[in-house]
Write a protein that binds this DNA or RNA. Structure first.
Lengths: 203, 203, 203, 203
DNA sequence: CATGAATGAGCATTCATTCAT
DNA sequence: TATGAATGAATGCTCATTCAT
């Protein structure tokens, strides 16, 4: 098999693993199912990843990378401008959209689910997702404060709270991700969050 | 065996089930382990609950009842008084303590984990926990607004945000419940949440 | 409970046992099912019969008694008369009807099925059914021979062959009891059997 | 493992299955026992046959093939010759020997036993055994009739009766296969059957 | 390296049987 | 005696993992 073929197989296995693990959970996911969905034989999975646990970790890491990239791209859009509220609302809404994406929901679910068995997943994911987003957002908020658009604040804490005001209500309303939330409800949550945030943090 | 004995066994099984399911997840939990931990024979579990799935649902429901009761008791402490900030901070801190309790963390984890397989868990738990707490808190906030201590607000939205300001940051800091959070950090989060909340909602 | 009640329960259990054992076979039949079908609690079955095996034997014996009675009644109808062929045909047809009755088929099936596990069933049933019928028929044939209606014959052997000529073809045509055989086919088999029998044994 | 090895395992499993199923019946037979007797692991059985039921059907079919082959070979020996009675007696005796063979008895027993649960067994077995033997014998009898050695007859009916005259008495005397029948008793039954048959059907 | 086949260990569930009442 | 409840011992079937090719 060509090198390219080998790489393809590895990627196919990872994709299938992400799919199956998020759909069924670690325990319930069968390696045969993953292999079948990837179009390879079961031992090929073992040749590439050694055992189910390793496959699981790598699949999680890959998913976390993807989710992180999306979120960072959103935070990156937050630029100072004439209308700070509008800018924040746009970012807030966009983050909610990402947050509610199926793969995003599934990853958070899976992570939560298996943290008991694999506590180190936190380290795999933290450096790749949650904290990095908070940090990036904190950076932006710091610059906005420096620019006099926000009052003096603890950037990390403010970023934490901004994100909390977004994701907290949406978790409730999406029934922990089991229900689709309509776009106007996303906008409503985003606006409410930004309103509260600005009341508390506007310069 | 006395009727009391039967009830005891049922309760013992439910307790063991909660323990084992939260420790291992639905798929990985073994009915034999639950039976052993409850001090009964495996078929006794089946006599009482019919199958693993039913046992799971009932164990979840029982845990949700317990967690709800704790949280409602905390919200119930929120009374108007001279020092609104102090009152809110006390309630906030107390809620965080509940939120970080091992059984609370475990229940949320398990719920998240198995929502894919058992979407109806949401209905079992919602009526018993999450929404009820938000509602109770919304009631209190409405009365505070009526009493002129808070500005006019949408009580449910404000309650959602108050809770989000508490639980969002704590999820991050506890690494999704994998790390104990020291009490002074709980106080810090509580104070920061109340500070932001009052900046946004004080009359 | 009255003595009568006790007897009723015993009978109800036996009836239910016959029903369930013939429907499911010994191994597959559940004592709980029998108890439920009899309207008693499982331990009541054990109080009356000790264990599943004993219950099985007694149920078989009761069924065998019933089947024997039916068959003997038929053989008993065989009287000498003007038209020997017609008399034999009537008895032959009647025996086939009995042979094809559901309970008769079920009993033979069950007996065959469990002879491996319970070889002594043969003794329970033989004295009650198969041999007794052959003997009774042999008696009649002997009298017919004495009366000069049949040639000299070995009565037992002739009876065996008469029965074989009836049941053999019918087993094949009923596909071992899985297919209902129409009445005119029963008559055809009966006539063919009697024809062959008379060709071989008429005086 | 070589392809040959795979085939060997499959055959070993089938052989063990036939052995165990006939010994214990479908319900009582344990797949682990079959696997052990075949010298393979339990999942190998499932890899080859999917489930217990399929294994059962295939084992039955294989046994039926074997039994059919034996019986056909016997019928095939029936050639016209100087001494028709002797020819018929030889075939009759030979058929009885086959009929009383342990595997033959066991297959009939098992078939009867499980027809309630698996009515389609009839179709599996009929085309492979019972009817084919009757047909083959009917063919021979037709030729003997054509050759003027037997009177005009309905070949199928005559074949049915010939077989019935053999197997009916032998079932009774072997106590449904629970008792070995001595060879001279087999000869006696064979001769008696042929005698009756020739009295009824000789030209 | 990829695969078809094999396996040891495990798991949900059932059942005949027995206590305690 | 009749019963609700409990249990030890199976049993069919699955799964992660490993060879032999």
């Amino acid at each position: 098999m060509t090198v390219r073929g080998r790489i393809d197989k590895r990627a196919a296995i990872l994709a299938a693993a992400a799919e199956v693990f998020t759909r069924e959970g670690y325990g319930q996911a069968g390696v045969d199912v993953i292999a079948a969905e990837a179009g390879v034989a079961k031992p090929t999975v073992y040749n590439h990843f050694g055992d189910k646990e390793t496959l699981f970790r790598e699949a999680i890491a890959a998913e976390a990378d993807r989710v992180l990239a999306e979120h960072l791209a959103v935070v990156d859009q937050l630029r100072d401008g004439d209308d700070l509220r509008a800018a924040l609302e746009n970012v807030a809404h966009h983050m909610l959209v990402c947050h509610c994406e199926e793969r995003s929901v599934a990853l958070r679910r899976l992570l939560n689910a298996e943290l008991g068995r694999f506590p180190d997943l936190i380290d795999i994911v933290r450096g790749r997702a949650a904290d990095r987003v908070t940090d990036a957002l904190a950076d932006r908020l710091a610059r906005l404060a420096l620019a006099g658009r926000l009052r003096r604040l603890d950037p990390t804490q403010a970023a934490e709270q901004f994100l909390a005001l977004l994701t907290g209500p949406i978790e409730a309303r999406s029934r922990l991700g089991t229900r689709r939330v309509a776009d106007d409800e996303l906008w409503a949550v985003a606006r409410a969050a930004v309103d509260t945030f600005l009341r508390a943090f506007a310069a």
